[in-house]
């Protein structure tokens, strides 16, 4: 936290909001009202200032997720190359709709907007790692390989 704060002017601690929330999320999995209040206090702002940021950005989560978060892109380039088909495939395979988490808490399936990897479409991010040029078969192989 001190390392994060050192990047910003001393009287502008609020600038550390995004990195601080991400740090907490990495540790806890998602952001609770308590952790938001704690971060806000540390940065000298009202809890609502952390709350509004936490709900604005798609990568920040205020609800629990599975151990593996699948962020599949279905924006134009990906869908032209089969992204929507992959989404339906994943929904069937995991048995949960978009946004859902499997009952065993292993997977959360999310539909996301352009991941800036259109040349290797369709793509998904599995816990923030890119996987590109996917087909239903390679997605199956990827999910099968996970412990």
């Amino acid at each position: 936290m001190a390392a994060i704060l050192s990047r910003y002017p001393a009287d502008r601690k609020r600038a550390a909001m995004l990195p601080a929330l991400r740090l907490v999320q990495e540790m806890k999995g998602y952001l609770t009202p308590e952790t938001l209040a704690l971060v806000a206090e540390r940065l000298g702002v009202a809890p609502a200032a952390a709350g509004e940021v936490a709900t604005f950005y798609t990568m920040l989560r205020v609800t629990p997720v599975g151990r593996y978060v699948i962020d599949l892109c279905t924006n134009v380039s990906c869908s032209l190359c089969g992204g929507e088909r992959l989404l339906r495939h994943l929904e069937r395979r995991l048995g949960v709709p978009v946004g859902g988490t499997t009952p065993d808490g292993k997977f959360t399936l999310r539909e996301v907007e352009c991941l800036a990897s259109c040349g290797t479409a369709p793509v998904l991010q599995l816990n923030e790692e890119y996987h590109e040029r996917l087909t239903p078969e390679t997605v199956d192989a990827l999910l099968d390989s996970l412990p």
Partner: peptide, 19 residues
């Protein structure tokens, strides 16, 4: 619920230009 697992990189570290 636990934090999402940290995955080892599954791809080579450099992305070569596709074009």
């Amino acid at each position: 619920m636990a934090a999402p697992a940290q995955l080892p990189p599954t791809r080579p570290a450099t992305l070569l230009p596709t074009g």
